[in-house]
Design a protein around this nucleic acid. Structure first.
Lengths: 353, 353
DNA sequence: CTGAAAGCGCTTACAG
DNA sequence: CTGAAAGCGCTTACAG
């Protein structure tokens, strides 16, 4: 709008003037701090509501420090998976506790260059929230350093993410990703599989904890992974599209593994559909295990065996850690909670051949 | 943290003192506004960075009005569907244009009581963003009134949502939901179906534009909907769960329709899986059409025929409307852009029997 | 119980 | 080119 017709909003001073008292008293009356006679308070409250007065949170913040009722949520990617559902649940719970919980996210996967991440964190920090919940998945160390500073200055932060604990001295809950993949591999091995392929989302090839844990499981029975059967992607597409591509690559294989571990249920469901239509029947010719136990898992071409990533448990822990700091004033050492996945057997896995 | 050891952060005044100049000049040097000698500017910039100075956005805001570089995103529900992908894309584009785009959402479906909605909007407004993008789906009029006030005060807002244009005098893009369902119904009717069932998410029964448009299509061939075949839900579960329940209800039906229009692809996919395992084959015994063309649509038990909700088109329009106001300083009358869905035929529909 | 005054950290006319 | 001063809208010792 070119004409900045900003209607003068009503301020505390206006209220005070109309009510015939000082700003100080008006402030006290409205906030409930300090002493004010019942009569005065009543007048002020009435006048304020008549005039449509609302305190400017900015001014309040500037004059008194931290924003007590807001908790910032930092996450790089809001994907269409249980992970986002998890964020929602955390947010909902905090809302119920009376906090405002704006989400600082940066578009979708593949856009989170360091510079963008830093800016995002700075924007969040600028709100001076009471606390910060940080999904550390994909977050760079430089960004976590800023978070560390926030903590050092007396802010409370709770981080959650995969495998490695983030380099921040704050409460954390981590999901033991490697162990989960180990579970998946063990399940397949016990069924008799030795030729196992891997697919990871967001990495060119299955990376660290995923790959090594599957190799460990395989090693226990004298088997190993094969380079040809290691798949990944660049993490910019949707899970289903990645899964379908994987299906194409799989169908093009000269020699195929008898089982696939696909690190995302949506990708796994799309993969199964593509491969089934390519003539492979699951689980007769191919076993598939997913990851996350997303809502879609039971409803694909065949009900998907998967690893529950304990969305629930992570959520509960995050809230609990936060509560102990916020409500119970706990101020001890940072705590680390580890959550494990569980195997959920459905119909997509069976003995090979 | 009980001991509020907040390290004194460095302020503009500190920088000015160390650089041996006034706050005014320091401010000018840093912001690039007003005249400052090159030498002074250089000194100030160096000192500032040495001291790790960063302007407090709050103070800046309080002293100069609106927050130029932030655009607030208001949406009630971040569901796990294309709708969220759409939000991400809009956010990403705005990020690329240099805006910070915090998301103000309120947990998940079913939690958005008026009171909560209002508070959410107030929190967003408190940021004094340059602009607001508002997904009006499910948003109450009282909340939109607040948004109207924002617009009246010179803020720019763009709303987008289903069917009805929101009661706000601002640019809007609406998705013609009713027409889309009409398309779905026509498609089925042309295939020969007369017995069509409906499922809507978030409503107890298929509501206004959905129901009436399907009835219109049916009316054109002298057919009509049947009360028994109208399904809905309360909108608090995940789409897949809703779809599975629908499947159970469908299987329990004494007489069944020959086709179902399911207003969400995830629900439709789960519905198909459940019903298929219950012995119904699609499309031989039952045709199904979904809605949204979500990423999952092609990958269920059978590839789903659906209506694309033109996520892309909505996104483009929202950005364009925003740009014309923000970049090109357009300040004319509010504009209304209508976007239509398109039928995407896949394998879940065929002639009945 | 009430109020004058200082202060939060910046920006911006306005006067040199 | 530079700076003293007022102001953004509130809160909070501190003094009545």
């Amino acid at each position: 709008m070119s004409l900045n017709q900003a209607k003068k909003t009503v301020t505390l001073a206006d209220v005070a003037r109309v009510a015939g008292i000082s700003k100080t008293t008006a402030s006290h009356a409205l906030s409930g701090k300090g002493w004010v006679s019942a009569a005065t308070r009543e007048t002020v409250v009435r006048v304020a509501s008549e005039m449509g007065f609302e305190v400017d949170p900015l001014a309040r913040l500037l004059s008194n420090g931290r924003s007590e009722k807001t908790i910032g949520f930092f996450t790089l990617d809001i994907d269409l998976s249980s992970r986002t559902r998890q964020m929602q649940i955390i947010q909902a719970q905090l809302n119920d506790m009376g906090y405002s919980v704006p989400i600082y996210a940066y578009g979708y996967r593949g856009r989170d260059a360091l510079e963008n991440q830093l800016e995002l964190m700075n924007n969040l920090l600028a709100q001076r929230p009471r606390a910060i919940v940080c999904n550390t998945s994909g977050v760079r160390d430089e960004v976590l350093e800023r978070l560390q500073k926030f903590v050092d200055e007396g802010g409370v932060a709770v981080c959650y993410g995969y495998s490695r604990s983030a380099p921040v001295r704050c409460d954390q809950v981590i999901y033991a990703e490697g162990e989960s993949h180990y579970l998946a591999a063990r399940h397949l091995i016990e069924l008799g599989h030795r030729d196992i392929g891997l697919f990871n989302v967001g990495y060119r090839k299955p990376a660290k904890p995923f790959l090594t844990e599957v190799q460990r499981a395989l090693g226990e029975v004298g088997a190993q992974t094969r380079e040809k059967w290691l798949f990944g992607n660049d993490g910019t597409r949707r899970y289903e599209e990645d899964g379908a591509r994987l299906g194409d690559e799989f169908l093009a294989l000269k020699s195929r593994p008898s089982a696939m571990i696909v690190a995302n249920d949506y990708a796994a469901v799309a993969f199964m559909a593509r491969v089934t239509r390519g003539g492979i029947s699951i689980p007769e010719n191919l076993s598939v295990v997913g990851h996350d136990d997303d809502a879609i898992a039971p409803f694909g071409v065949v009900a998907l065996t998967t690893i529950s990533s304990s969305i629930e448990a992570v959520t509960v822990s995050v809230i609990e850690l936060l509560n102990s700091r916020l409500l119970r004033d706990y101020s001890g050492e940072p705590r680390l909670v580890t959550v494990r996945g569980e195997l959920v057997v459905r119909d997509s896995t069976a003995a090979p051949r």
